[in-house]
Computed example of a mutant assay.
Amino acid sequence: MTRQLNKNTLLNAVDIEKLCDAAAREVDIEVVQETGSTNADLMSRLPLLQRPVLRVAVHQTAGRGRAGRPWLTVPGGMLTFSLAWHLPQAPQNLLGLPLAIGVALAECLNTLNQNVQLKWPNDILRDGKKLAGILLESAAASEGGTWIVAGIGLNLQVSDELEAQVGRALADAPWLAQMDRNLLLAQLLNALASALQQFAGHGFSAFLPRWNALHAYANQSVHILDHGQILHAGIALGVDLLGCLVLQTEQGQVNVLAGDVSLRPAT
């Protein structure tokens, strides 16, 4: 059986801006019908940017996830966008930023009754399945600090064909798919702009307890995989101030840096 995709994918930059809070109105909003990757588009323009930019694509043909993995999309079935933003911190002080962005998105989605949780380091889960993912890229800014580009892919309606391509069950949000897309995107941008302002002033410390409160695998047995091989096994306790996963193993406590490793529940 194939789920019917909602064709109401109309997005308009002016309409999105009208629905934004003050902080989000400082962002230049761009909507394109199709592009390869919104993250790649913005990363290529960072040396020229003067203001934050939100770039939204109805369809991405070369979307990317962590470690260069492809992010497959279906036109109209997902919300795919990237946000370029300047932060005062140096790149090495942004380790907790992907988690902070996850908190902002999850809290926003939960105000829309989505009941989501966070999977370390950068996935948003609903009913144990992936609803959204985050790809964070950055470059040192010539004026000091760092330009970051946060790419987000949010499943709204997922076809069985896409699940077959991905090779696992995915979560979607049919109720969000019925929302006005401009309103949904404005609410997500409001949450992101507020979070990035907060991170600029306080770093990850402002988000640490909020992330742990949304932790999908809190106090559960997990495996940390590196290229498919088990690197660590233990109980996931939470995250620390650097955004590392705190794992209680048989050998003692281990703080795992995200890098290219992945978390899986132990079976």
Rank of each mutant, 00 (worst) to 15 (best):
V261S: 14
L231K: 13
W175Y: 12
T2F: 05
L5N: 12
G63K: 07
K18H: 13
A24Q: 02
A90P: 03
V149A: 10
H223P: 00
T9S: 15
L54C: 12
L46Y: 02
G96V: 05
D260E: 15
V56M: 04
L109K: 02
L125D: 03
A200T: 07
G65E: 08
G63D: 03
P98Q: 06
Q187G: 08
D41C: 10
K18Y: 07
S221I: 00
A169Q: 15
P70K: 10
I124M: 06
L241N: 14
R45M: 09
A100P: 00
L263F: 01
T267I: 12
M179T: 03
L131I: 04
P88E: 10
W175P: 05
I230P: 03
Q114K: 06
P174W: 10
E26Q: 15
M179C: 13
R51I: 02
W120P: 01
E250L: 12
F199C: 03
I29Y: 01
R3N: 13
A193G: 02
D21R: 10
H223I: 01
S194F: 03
N255M: 07
V53Y: 00
V58M: 11
Q165F: 08
N255Y: 08
L109I: 05
E250I: 06
L154S: 04
L136M: 15
R55F: 00
I134G: 07
N93Q: 15
T35Q: 06
G65S: 05
P174G: 11
N155V: 11
E26L: 12
N110V: 03
V239C: 11
D41S: 10
I152P: 00
G243F: 04
A164R: 15
G259T: 09
S194T: 12
E26G: 09
L237E: 14
T73M: 12
L156S: 07
T249N: 08
Q251N: 14
W85C: 06
N12K: 10
R3M: 10
Q220M: 11
L184E: 05
P91G: 09
C20E: 04
Q220E: 15
D21K: 02
P265I: 07
Q197C: 11
K7V: 13
F81Q: 08
V14Y: 10
S142Q: 14
L87M: 06
V56G: 01
V74E: 15
D21E: 13
L72T: 08
G151L: 08
A62Q: 14
E143C: 14
M43L: 13
S138H: 13
W85V: 09
W85M: 09
G145D: 11
R210P: 00
L131P: 02
A140I: 02
G96I: 05
E250K: 13
N6H: 13
W211S: 05
T9G: 12
N190K: 10
Q165R: 14
D240R: 00
I152V: 15
A67H: 11
T267H: 13
A195C: 03
L94W: 04
G96R: 01
N6V: 14
L19N: 09
R69G: 04
A193M: 00
A62T: 02
